[in-house]
Design a protein around this nucleic acid. Structure first.
Length: 306
RNA sequence: GGUACCAUAGCUCAGUAGGUAGAGCAACGGACUGAAAAUCCGUGUGUCCUUGGUUCGAUUCCGAGUGGUACCA
């Protein structure tokens, strides 16, 4: 298999279509996939959960019928999942798809997932649930200062570099130290993995005003489509990580009586806007991105043909 | 129509005993190595309604205008 690829004149190619939420990735990806008669891999960390439809804006049944999609609704909110698992499963899937297609499309807005697939992510053992719960317990009962002291002892090198106000980063490092008995920083190589296929990255964007209008329109559409009902049915599981998601957490707060429904919707809009900004910041850093207006699909296809 | 009050950041407002102004929210910018739609950090963006006057100097004091709110007709 490897040899065949090496001698093959036309190399396999992955086309990544990304951009901020509500920019129109789904439509663009489908059009490009149709142009190349191929399939789509989703790299959206929330569309993977089959219990979450409306709030994650998964492609419609018609859209899914048009082009085969992967990694949509493939997980339950009760499953543990992480970027590394995505990287491995995705590489395996690509290996299969490239036997049929020269070009495969990947679309979604989870920047870390995209980077993990394109550049690789350092390998360290998965942390046992008990250790994760222990460290979480430390944070909840002892506070962040205690976590800092632990990290300083376990991995002074990482302590010097990590954002000491970001408890998640500190907890992750401590967990790995405890799991392996080695400093977290000893697993970090900063080395980019080479992939046996070409990668083309397309990022979608449009004037901020239009993006914001899209976000507001889509939020209203989600509410009309029954987002509140979906959130109500998931309320018992609101503590799960999968449900720490824009569109759901604000409605859970409404159900808890923290604010009224109009406020909840306004917060969904605001938090979606902020999420879109964080995505744009992430993608802007990637110099390999080729930026397009989502309406210029012909230009994208042309670029991919040349 | 009359009287009173108000006019300062995108919004709600504070303030300057006269020396060109600051809070909350919104907004904007950034970081990111297995929970990432997560998590964390940074930043006031302003004809102080307009226009005369007093003054070395007016967003601030006085007059007029415009707009708004309330009450009286």
């Amino acid at each position: 298999m490897e040899n065949k690829k090496d001698t093959c004149a036309v190399q396999s190619r992955l086309v990544v279509v990304t951009g901020p939420t509500a920019i129109g990735k789904t439509r663009v990806a489908i059009e490009i996939a149709k142009a190349f008669h191929t399939e789509i891999i989703s790299c959206d960390s929330r569309q993977m959960y089959r219990e979450m439809h409306i709030g994650t804006a998964v492609p419609s049944a018609e859209e899914l019928a048009t082009v085969p999609h992967h990694f949509i609704g493939n997980l339950s909110i009760h499953d543990y999942y992480n970027v590394s698992m995505f990287e491995q499963e995705c590489l395996q899937l690509l290996d299969n798809l490239f036997q049929t297609y020269q070009t495969v499309i990947m679309t979604g807005g989870s920047g870390l997932y995209i980077d993990a697939l394109c550049n690789g992510i350092d390998d360290f053992p998965t942390v046992d649930t008990e250790i994760r719960e222990t460290v979480t317990g430390w944070f909840e009962t002892e506070g962040i200062e205690y976590l800092r002291r632990q990290l300083k002892m376990l991995d002074p090198e990482h302590y010097a570099r990590v954002d000491l106000r970001n408890y998640k980063r500190i907890m992750k490092a401590i967990e790995v130290c405890l799991q392996t008995g080695k400093p977290y920083s000893s697993f970090l190589t900063s080395q980019q993995r080479l992939r046996p296929f070409e990668i083309v990255k397309i990022a979608l964007n449009r004037p901020r005003e239009e993006l914001v209008a899209n976000i507001h329109r889509r939020t209203d559409a989600m509410m009309e489509a029954g987002l509140l009902g979906e959130a109500e049915s998931l309320y018992p599981y609101r503590k799960l990580n999968a449900l720490n998601t824009v569109g759901y957490k604000e409605l859970f707060a409404y159900m808890d009586g923290l604010h009224d429904l109009d406020t909840a919707v306004e917060l969904i809009r605001r938090n979606t806007r902020r999420y879109a900004k964080r995505q744009l910041t992430w993608f802007a850093r990637d110099t390999a991105m080729q930026w397009f207006h989502p309406d210029h699909i012909d230009a994208m296809v042309e670029t991919l043909h040349s």
